[in-house]
Design a protein around this nucleic acid. Structure first.
Length: 374
RNA sequence: GGGGAAGUCGCAUAGCGGCAAUUGCAACAGACUGUAAAUCUGUCCUCUUCGGAGUUCGGUGGUUCGAGUCCACCCUUCCCCA
């Protein structure tokens, strides 16, 4: 697996990440499919309509259910879920954050209480690499602690140090083990350091020292102000090697993504297009729509007449309003397909402008409209 | 014609002398960033300077310091027997 940086426009980068399951043009948005399913979206829609180039899975969730023995028996997650394109798995580090009440941290690792049945499980850096080998993701993530955005300096520093020791152990295990299914797997270390520039610098340097195939920036969009997030991205990207892809974990809104691309980020994932879509929020070039609002009741325009997705062209806003209000499953599907198609179109267009060399001008023209409420 | 039951804020419900009144649904709005989320939150009689103020529980009277709650009559609906 390797990365070709093809063009830059300011700090914005257009590249190609080559994997054994296909090439990924960057910047890219990766739909989140936590348990081996992008919620409410069929695999064929992911390829034919949305044209997702890579999707996410989650080690913690897949480990609990169906469990890696099942995935091994199936021949890995790709075969299990019938997905031929690349997969990135999060390590469970985010669950250290989001399931904070159900876990206990130690030097060795993290003890979790399953949110499904309350059973106890231990994740160590080594185990998380082994699990991701068994899952067979193309890109595996290091096991990290993702501290809350407003963590005090002392805690952030201690947490970062632990993440670094875990990162070293993950990389060691990675180099000691082999892929199980015949395709290459990368392991991305994760930069932490909260909102503190000096910690972010240290963390980026520590990660860079591993000479990994790619790098992730974690611990952002977890409660800190957006401007702080942008500053931290700049600090980190000034240090991470330019010839490797940079993945900003869990981000974000369309505007967040364009701003981060401008600061040199190549890869994104976020639950926002799918979760918010299921909750009635649509993203468009002219701003966001709450499709549940009464004002869409009689709007018989296509959801997006220029979209790649069939669902966007042949169904109207009024129909989607009706479906979501009626809690029809088709509404969740159409809203999710729409949002993911938009997110992929957003990064595809960004890439075009990077290659054209006018990214900053284009971005400043479109970014303000993206967060308008329609 | 005779007997019985019941009328509460869109609908359905709670309420048994201190009540602007319970709960669910619907409606209306908001939130959601490496998914414990097809979830969660708020508003939901009227007005409000958000402190309150004013009108409410089928109708009209009455008892009481005080009535959605007790009494009388009336209206309406449902059930049973003719």
């Amino acid at each position: 697996m390797h990365f070709d940086l093809l063009a830059t426009s300011g700090k914005a980068r257009a590249g190609l990440l080559h994997t054994d399951h296909g090439d990924i043009p960057t910047p890219i948005f990766m739909p989140v499919g936590t348990v081996g399913s992008v919620k409410a979206v069929h695999q064929r829609e992911l390829t034919d309509d949305i044209d997702a180039k890579i999707i996410l899975g989650n080690t913690y969730h897949l480990y609990l259910r169906p469990g890696t023995p099942s995935l091994k028996a199936a021949g890995g997650l790709h075969r299990f879920m019938g997905w031929q394109r690349p997969i990135l798995t999060d390590s469970g580090g985010f669950q250290v954050f989001s399931l904070a009440e159900n876990r206990k941290l130690s030097e060795e690792g993290c003890t979790f209480k399953s949110h499904i049945d309350g059973s106890r499980h231990v994740f160590t850096p080594e185990k998380v690499v082994d699990l991701q080998r068994e899952i067979g993701s193309d890109i595996m993530m290091a096991f990290d602690e993702c501290p809350p955005g407003e963590s005090p300096y002392d805690y952030a520093k201690k947490s970062m140090a632990l993440t670094h020791r875990w990162m070293d152990r993950c990389m060691k295990r990675y180099h000691e083990t082999q892929p199980l299914y015949g395709h290459q797997q990368a392991l991305f270390p994760i930069v932490q350091g909260c909102k503190y520039a000096d910690l972010r610098r240290q963390s980026a340097e520590h990660a860079a020292s591993h000479n990994a195939i790619g790098y992730a920036i974690g611990g952002l969009a977890v409660g800190e102000p957006t401007e702080v997030m942008y500053q931290m991205i700049e600090v980190v990207n000034a240090i991470l090697p330019t010839d490797k892809p940079r993945y900003l974990m869990g981000v974000g809104t369309p505007a967040n993504i364009l701003e981060a691309i401008e600061r040199g980020v190549d890869m994104f994932d976020c639950v926002m297009p799918t979760r918010n879509g299921r909750n009635g929020m649509l993203f468009t070039w002219e701003g966001t729509i709450n499709i549940k609002n009464k004002k869409w009741e009689h709007c018989f325009d296509a959801i997006d007449p220029t979209s790649h997705a069939l669902a966007d062209r042949c169904y109207t806003l009024a129909y989607l309003h009706h479906l979501i209000k009626s809690e029809e499953l088709l509404g969740l599907q159409i809203a999710s397909i729409h949002n993911l198609t938009f997110y992929l179109e957003l990064v595809r267009t960004a890439r075009e402008h990077i290659i054209q060399g006018d990214y900053a001008e284009w971005k400043s023209k479109v970014v303000d409209k993206l967060s308008v409420r329609r």
